[in-house]
């Protein structure tokens, strides 16, 4: 079965955050032989793909885990562009677009994901058997 997962939660607190639930759900469904049409990171969920977030030693590194899963299964991973820009998650294009002489910006979207619009969420729900929201 073809799934789309929508991730609304930031990864900061593992037990209080459904981002970790979403990750485990994604990993499990892939192991069960199902497929993921798209991961869509929305709102606070964009923090899951911030390359500049440093996870303390000894804690589960959720951004790194997402990136590994996306790479391993060649997943289509989309980060809401409006939510990402507000929270300082920028790709190469946006970093260059918004950087000025007075304001140095980082290109900090983890590799394997792209910034795009809500149209990608509509498209994903239309093409998937199930859309599961982790809020």
């Amino acid at each position: 079965m073809l799934f789309t997962l929508v991730i609304h939660a930031a990864p900061h607190s593992l037990l209080g955050s459904t981002a970790y639930n979403a990750y485990q759900f994604a990993q499990c469904l892939l192991q069960e032989g199902h497929s993921i049409h798209r991961l869509f990171f929305y709102g606070e969920g964009v923090h899951n793909l911030n390359a500049q977030a440093i996870t303390p030693q000894g804690e589960f590194d959720l951004p790194a885990a997402w990136q590994a899963l996306i790479t391993q299964y060649q997943l289509d991973s989309v980060v809401c562009i409006a939510a990402a820009l507000r929270r300082g998650v920028l790709d190469d294009n946006e970093q260059r677009r918004h950087q000025t002489a007075q304001r140095a910006l980082a290109n900090n979207l983890l590799d394997g994901s792209e910034l795009s619009g809500l149209g990608q969420l509509i498209d994903a729900t239309a093409h998937s058997d199930r859309t599961i929201t982790f809020a």
Binding site: M1, F3, H8, H34, R130, T131, T133, F134, A135
Partner: peptide, 11 residues
């Protein structure tokens, strides 16, 4: 989530 359709989250 395969057996039931749709799947609705509440928040």
């Amino acid at each position: 989530s395969c057996e039931y359709n749709p799947v609705q989250s509440w928040y």
